[in-house]
Design a protein around this nucleic acid. Structure first.
Lengths: 226, 226
DNA sequence: CAGCTATATTGGACAGCGTACAGTTAACGA
DNA sequence: TCGTTAACTGTACGCTGTCCAATATAGCTG
């Protein structure tokens, strides 16, 4: 796959004689093209493009498929170029994780039924997580996301719990239980690994019912504590 | 993928360990010594030694600290030598995970209170997991263990559920919920990452109460379904 | 418009990883 | 005693994340 260089002309690196190559006017990042750029030239990379392509690569090729080098290849860029836009691979993944959480639907702040509000948050989170199966193990390995979206979600949950009269450490407990349960369930529902552990794979509908049942039990317990 | 083909590497599946044959008593594994061995000489490595050192290395230096090369270094052996005893790194970790589960305490088969029986299993699992914090993310990433110990545990859970009149797909659901909840909770209870997400770290006692509360809610719901 | 500075990008490199291949030798059964 | 088998080493390949110095471009200042 590599060494597509074979270029008729300059395979030389430090050559440097005039010979200005045709400069791409609007550039636009090439999909599969190899970068024919000399050191100083811009590629028009943006942080958003990096994140988007990384996300795409991750959901497409899995966690092991996400490497800085492959990412750079897709962006038509040298691997190091990425480091001008993200601090490193772990930072990249962190941002990715938080980005996904933006899609979680939260109830209106005025909803006066905390149980249904929390159900909505958690089921939406569950669905969002299932939309990105390859991210789920990462949430787990990192014990949840820590970015602004994650933080905001946590606040909404607190608000709902407060409406149910649950505050302080009890609220922390309840929130933790709900988060753990939801992420964990998404993890087990995710069919990445050879999940033929013991029986036929459950359908996603079955799993979802499964999830909501357990969620209802938890919420029931939480509310009855208040 | 590990393939692990090539005739010689057979690595003996775990089962029934026959008696340990005479080992080179001196030698043993050198702590910091450098291997002064020429190609054909034996190092007295055993599968158990490999697993034990790997376990030690993992809990000591974390997941990123566990590398075949560092493991070999500790064993006083060339990296490839390990492949005579385990099929590859992933197999090694799989065995590690299952090994730990052997410590989970299960109720007597005759216990006639499924709720307390399941509580016992899950709390014991929780404690065992917390004893090996650095393994927990691995359980999650792999969605639980799949070795014989894990399988046996699953069977015991089924037996308890059956005593409560829960069988078939309902039993599968319930078991999945319980496993997810337990592993997930252990994950969030594990303080590996900078867990200063929002508030002071809960004490382990708080977390344990937290865990048992949610567990009780789940079991309550499960049993009320039967 | 010229000049300066900040920075996006490249080639190259480093250290480390998992593991395959091909030898060399010790242990073991015949 | 010999032949086979398994453990072990040396070496090497292709991969990884990331740093460094050089370079050309973009944007700002004048």
């Amino acid at each position: 796959m590599e060494t597509a260089r074979t270029g008729p002309t300059h395979a030389a690196q430090r050559d440097t004689d005039v010979e200005t190559p045709p400069r791409p006017p609007h550039n636009a990042r090439a999909a599969g093209e190899q970068a024919a750029r000399t050191p100083g030239q811009r590629a028009g990379l943006t942080r958003e493009a990096v994140l988007a392509t990384a996300h795409e690569l991750l959901t497409e090729r899995g966690l092991d498929g996400l490497s800085m080098r492959e990412l750079a290849r897709r962006l038509g860029v040298a691997p190091n170029a990425i480091y001008s836009h993200v601090a490193g691979k772990t930072a990249l993944v962190d941002d990715l994780l938080d980005e996904v959480l933006a899609a979680v639907e939260t109830p209106d702040a005025e909803t006066n039924d905390p149980t249904s509000g929390l159900t909505r948050i958690m089921t939406s989170t569950y669905r969002v997580l299932l939309d990105h199966p390859d991210l789920v193990p990462l949430y787990l390995a990192r014990q949840g996301a820590r970015g602004p979206n994650a933080q905001a979600l946590g606040e909404v949950m607190f608000a709902q719990l407060a409406q149910a009269g649950i505050t302080g450490s009890a609220a922390h407990e309840a929130r933790r239980v709900l988060i753990v349960y939801t992420i964990g369930f998404a993890a087990l529902a995710t069919p990445t690994a050879s999940d033929a552990s013991d029986d036929r794979p459950l359908s996603s509908a079955e799993l979802f019912g499964n999830f909501t049942a357990g969620l209802a039990w938890l919420l029931n317990g939480i509310m009855s504590d208040a």
